[in-house]
Protein backbone atom coordinates (compact mmCIF):
# COMPACT_ATOMS: atom_id res chain seq x y z
CA UNK A 1 0.00 0.00 0.00
CA UNK A 2 2.60 2.54 1.09
CA UNK A 3 5.23 0.47 2.89
CA UNK A 4 8.05 2.47 1.28
CA UNK A 5 6.96 5.52 3.34
CA UNK A 6 8.95 4.34 6.39
CA UNK A 7 12.32 3.92 4.58
CA UNK A 8 11.62 7.20 2.74
CA UNK A 9 11.12 9.03 6.05
CA UNK A 10 14.34 7.50 7.37
CA UNK A 11 16.12 8.59 4.16
CA UNK A 12 15.06 12.21 4.75
CA UNK A 13 16.40 12.10 8.34
CA UNK A 14 19.71 10.47 7.34
CA UNK A 15 20.18 13.01 4.51
CA UNK A 16 19.84 15.88 6.99
CA UNK A 17 22.26 14.11 9.34
CA UNK A 18 24.74 13.53 6.50
CA UNK A 19 24.71 17.24 5.56
CA UNK A 20 25.37 18.18 9.21
CA UNK A 21 28.26 15.71 9.48
CA UNK A 22 29.71 17.02 6.20
CA UNK A 23 29.66 20.59 7.53
CA UNK A 24 31.15 19.52 10.85
CA UNK A 25 33.93 17.52 9.17
CA UNK A 26 34.77 20.46 6.87
CA UNK A 27 34.90 22.93 9.78
CA UNK A 28 36.96 20.77 12.13
CA UNK A 29 40.10 19.65 10.39
CA UNK A 30 39.10 15.99 10.14
CA UNK A 31 41.91 13.53 10.82
CA UNK A 32 43.22 11.13 8.19
CA UNK A 33 40.51 8.71 7.10
CA UNK A 34 42.52 5.59 7.71
CA UNK A 35 43.56 6.73 11.19
CA UNK A 36 40.07 7.50 12.50
CA UNK A 37 38.16 5.02 10.35
CA UNK A 38 35.76 6.11 7.62
CA UNK A 39 34.11 9.53 8.18
CA UNK A 40 30.46 9.47 9.27
CA UNK A 41 29.35 11.60 6.32
CA UNK A 42 30.58 8.87 3.95
CA UNK A 43 28.98 6.10 6.00
CA UNK A 44 25.66 7.96 6.01
CA UNK A 45 25.97 8.47 2.26
CA UNK A 46 25.95 4.67 1.85
CA UNK A 47 22.79 4.42 3.99
CA UNK A 48 21.22 7.24 1.96
CA UNK A 49 21.93 5.43 -1.30
CA UNK A 50 20.39 2.24 0.10
CA UNK A 51 17.28 4.01 1.40
CA UNK A 52 16.64 6.52 -1.43
CA UNK A 53 17.36 3.96 -4.14
CA UNK A 54 15.24 1.28 -2.52
CA UNK A 55 12.36 3.69 -1.91
CA UNK A 56 12.46 4.93 -5.52
CA UNK A 57 12.27 1.41 -6.95
CA UNK A 58 9.53 0.46 -4.48
CA UNK A 59 7.58 3.59 -5.45
CA UNK A 60 7.74 2.40 -9.07
CA UNK A 61 6.29 -0.96 -7.97
CA UNK A 62 3.44 0.85 -6.20
CA UNK A 63 2.73 2.96 -9.30
CA UNK A 64 2.80 -0.23 -11.40
CA UNK A 65 0.23 -1.89 -9.13
CA UNK A 66 -1.98 1.21 -9.11
CA UNK A 67 -1.42 1.95 -5.42
CA UNK A 68 -0.02 5.41 -6.19
CA UNK A 69 -2.10 7.64 -8.45
CA UNK A 70 -1.19 10.95 -10.13
CA UNK A 71 -4.04 12.91 -8.48
CA UNK A 72 -4.88 13.84 -4.88
CA UNK A 73 -4.71 12.02 -2.39
CA UNK A 74 -2.03 10.13 -4.42
CA UNK A 75 -2.63 6.83 -2.57
CA UNK A 76 -5.59 4.63 -3.53
CA UNK A 77 -5.79 3.41 0.08
CA UNK A 78 -6.74 6.95 1.14
CA UNK A 79 -9.57 7.03 -1.40
CA UNK A 80 -11.15 3.78 -0.27
CA UNK A 81 -13.38 3.89 2.83
CA UNK A 82 -11.65 2.03 5.66
CA UNK A 83 -8.39 1.86 3.77
CA UNK A 84 -6.40 4.19 6.00
CA UNK A 85 -5.98 1.89 9.01
CA UNK A 86 -4.69 -1.12 7.02
CA UNK A 87 -2.32 1.23 5.17
CA UNK A 88 -0.95 2.63 8.44
CA UNK A 89 -0.69 -0.92 9.77
CA UNK A 90 1.37 -1.95 6.74
CA UNK A 91 3.67 1.06 7.12
CA UNK A 92 4.13 0.25 10.82
CA UNK A 93 4.91 -3.43 10.23
CA UNK A 94 6.35 -4.06 6.75
CA UNK A 95 7.64 -0.50 6.20
CA UNK A 96 9.38 -0.24 9.56
CA UNK A 97 10.70 -3.79 9.05
CA UNK A 98 12.20 -2.75 5.69
CA UNK A 99 13.84 0.35 7.17
CA UNK A 100 15.17 -1.62 10.16
CA UNK A 101 16.54 -4.46 7.99
CA UNK A 102 18.31 -2.07 5.58
CA UNK A 103 19.78 -0.18 8.56
CA UNK A 104 20.95 -3.46 10.13
CA UNK A 105 22.68 -4.52 6.90
CA UNK A 106 24.29 -1.04 6.67
CA UNK A 107 25.44 -1.33 10.29
CA UNK A 108 27.31 -4.58 9.57
CA UNK A 109 28.65 -3.03 6.35
CA UNK A 110 30.19 -0.05 8.17
CA UNK A 111 31.60 -2.31 10.89
CA UNK A 112 33.43 -4.37 8.24
CA UNK A 113 34.54 -1.26 6.30
CA UNK A 114 35.84 0.41 9.49
CA UNK A 115 37.73 -2.72 10.52
CA UNK A 116 39.32 -2.95 7.05
CA UNK A 117 40.26 0.74 7.05
CA UNK A 118 41.91 0.45 10.47
CA UNK A 119 43.72 -2.74 9.43
CA UNK A 120 44.95 -0.94 6.32
CA UNK A 121 46.20 1.98 8.44
CA UNK A 122 48.19 -0.42 10.61
CA UNK A 123 49.72 -2.25 7.66
CA UNK A 124 50.33 1.00 5.77
CA UNK A 125 48.22 0.07 2.77
CA UNK A 126 45.28 2.35 1.97
CA UNK A 127 44.39 2.19 -1.70
CA UNK A 128 44.01 -1.57 -1.84
CA UNK A 129 41.67 -1.91 1.11
CA UNK A 130 39.66 1.28 0.83
CA UNK A 131 37.49 1.14 -2.21
CA UNK A 132 35.43 4.25 -2.91
CA UNK A 133 31.66 3.80 -2.90
Amino acid sequence: MACFAAPLAEAVITTVLMKRFEKKEKMTDAPNESQAGIPWSRKLKWLNNLLWGGSALLALEHIWHGEIIPQFPFLTALKEPGGVLPMLGEIATVGVGMAAFVTLVWFFMIKIADARAKKAAVSGKTAETEPCI
Binding site: G53, G54, T93, G97, I133
Partner: peptide
Protein backbone atom coordinates in the same frame (compact mmCIF):
# COMPACT_ATOMS: atom_id res chain seq x y z
CA UNK B 1 29.12 2.26 -9.55
CA UNK B 2 28.93 2.00 -5.76
CA UNK B 3 25.84 4.21 -5.76
CA UNK B 4 24.17 1.97 -8.36
CA UNK B 5 25.00 -1.16 -6.33
CA UNK B 6 23.58 0.32 -3.14
CA UNK B 7 20.42 1.44 -4.92
CA UNK B 8 19.74 -2.08 -6.23
CA UNK B 9 20.70 -3.74 -2.93
CA UNK B 10 18.39 -1.35 -1.06
CA UNK B 11 15.43 -2.32 -3.25
CA UNK B 12 16.30 -6.04 -3.12
CA UNK B 13 16.50 -5.98 0.70
CA UNK B 14 13.18 -4.14 0.95
CA UNK B 15 11.44 -6.60 -1.36
CA UNK B 16 12.98 -9.46 0.62
CA UNK B 17 11.30 -8.11 3.77
CA UNK B 18 8.06 -7.80 1.76
CA UNK B 19 8.43 -11.48 0.79
CA UNK B 20 9.01 -12.54 4.40
CA UNK B 21 5.93 -10.52 5.44
Amino acid sequence: LGALCLMYWGAALMWLVDCVA
